[in-house]
Structure formats: structure tokens, C-alpha cells
Design a protein around this nucleic acid. Structure first.
Lengths: 124, 124
DNA sequence: ATATCTACTTACCTTGAGTTAACTAACTAT
DNA sequence: ATAGTTAGTTAACTCAAGGTAAGTAGATAT
């Protein structure tokens, strides 16, 4: 029981950003949602399409995000190979986030999403 | 207290499917997410791209969805003008759901999403 | 010695999306 | 009468995403 518990807490700590999956139907839409379905993923991605950004910059751009949510989102997207984290040993430390090719490739989808919203959600 | 309570419960009952919004930044991506950002929206939409479907059909296709979640999702998408509900006075009652033009217009986006997932999530 | 900076981490807590299970309406068929 | 049908509703509950607030590292500036 105690052995299981320690594994449990470790696991839940690491995975606290992964959205729950509707039982792994082998469906490409769900796979995409596992990666980019979080509350903040789209907003972070949107910022990174404008180029490499640092933690603080993202925080300032996405005003209502907490540092925890930002870290969680960045880690999650990194884990899935959508973005890359690079730390430079400056002082204070500099950390840069940029999209990988996999992440860049989401551009078309995001674009379609924006087009749709522009067309249908302009003042509703 | 009791007056507030009744309003409260009515409200939470009506709105229990609307995802929380990151403080209404006037951003088209967020607007789109308000509409289609729920856990089940994409899966329901995917089914309806194949044509008009009834409640029971949707339930059978999306195996892990509960009737409540299905109702909530359908109501939410209807409210945003993405789909249309039509009830026929047969016995037992027949209810059909079909996409509106606004809903049909999501096709391109969903397609891009599937393409991306096919390219990058095939066996990860 | 204390303050300041960035980029976090940790612990605790709230909330609301989603689940489960039972029930309902309105009618038909046996 | 009772069982079966579709398309839900209702109440009670769970659970994990996300929020809040405080702390940390490692160095510089005053």
C-alpha cells in the first residue's frame, strides 16, 4: 500500500498536465488533443509562432496565466516534442522556448482556426 | 441566502458545459476554443461530418461518452450555432442533429488537425 | 547584509467538468 | 398490466486541472 502510494504521488506529480483521454480510441483527432488540448496550449503556441520567447515574455503576453500553469504547459509541449527548451548559463539564467518542426507544422491548423473564428465569431 | 441559492443552482445547471475562459482577451483562437474547446466537442463534430445523426447513434459511436455529457455537448454546440437539433413527433421521439453552415465550415480545421496527427503522432 | 533578477518549484486548495446511476415522458406492443 | 422504446433529466459525487501564495537557486548590484 505504501509502496503503491509513493509511485502514485510521483506519477501524479509528473503527469498533472496531461488531459484525460477518452479511452484511447485509435483516432487521430484524439491524439492531437492529447498534445494540444490543454487550456493554455493554443495560447502558448500562438505566441511561439511569432518567434522564440522567454518564460517571462510568455508570462507577460498571456496575462492571466500562472507560473505553474505556464511551466506545466511548456513541459507538456516539450514532452510531446512540440517545442524545445534551451537554458543559457547567464546570470540570471536565460531560458528560451522555440517551436520544433513538429510544432511549426501546427501553423496551418491554427491558421484555419483563426480564419473560422474571424468568419463566425466576430461579434457573437 | 435561499434566494441566491436558487439562482446559483439554475445558473450552474445551465452553464455547466461552458469551458472557463482565460479572461476574455479579444483573441480569435480563444473565441474558437469557447465553442469547440470542450472534451467531447471534436469527437461529436467528427461524427456529424459524416452526416446527420441521432442521439443514440452518437452514443454508440462515441463509446465512452455518458448521456449527460452528450446532451451537454450537443446543447453547447447548438447554442453557439454549430449544429441544429430537430425533433420529430414520432413514437418514440426521433431527434436528429446536423451541422449548420458554421459547423460545416470547421471541416478544413479538423482536416488539418487530422493531417498533423497522422504525420506526427502515428506511433508515439 | 539586503535587495533584486529570472525561472522556476512546492504545497496546499478550489472548482467545475465530467461520471454514475437511477429516474422520467410519452407512446406502443404483447 | 407491464415491458420496451428513444431521448433525455436529476442528484450526488469524483477527480484532476488549474489557481494561489510562498519559497528556492545562484548570481549581481547597492
Amino acid at each position: 500500500m505504501s509502496m503503491l502510494e509513493s509511485e502514485q504521488s510521483k506519477k501524479s506529480n509528473l503527469q498533472n498536465y496531461i488531459p484525460k483521454k477518452p479511452e484511447r480510441i485509435a483516432c487521430s483527432i484524439e491524439k492531437a488533443l492529447d498534445v494540444i488540448g490543454g487550456k493554455w496550449s493554443f495560447l502558448v503556441l500562438k505566441e511561439l509562432f511569432d518567434g522564440t520567447k522567454r518564460f517571462g515574455e510568455l508570462q507577460r503576453k498571456i496575462k492571466s496565466i500562472s507560473p505553474k500553469s505556464l511551466t506545466d504547459t511548456l513541459r507538456h509541449l516539450e514532452e510531446y516534442g512540440v517545442l524545445e527548451r534551451t537554458a543559457y548559463p547567464t546570470v540570471p539564467v536565460t531560458v528560451e522556448y522555440k517551436l520544433t518542426p513538429k510544432g511549426e507544422d501546427l501553423h496551418q491548423m491554427l491558421k484555419e482556426m483563426k480564419l473560422w473564428a474571424a468568419k463566425w465569431c466576430s461579434d457573437v
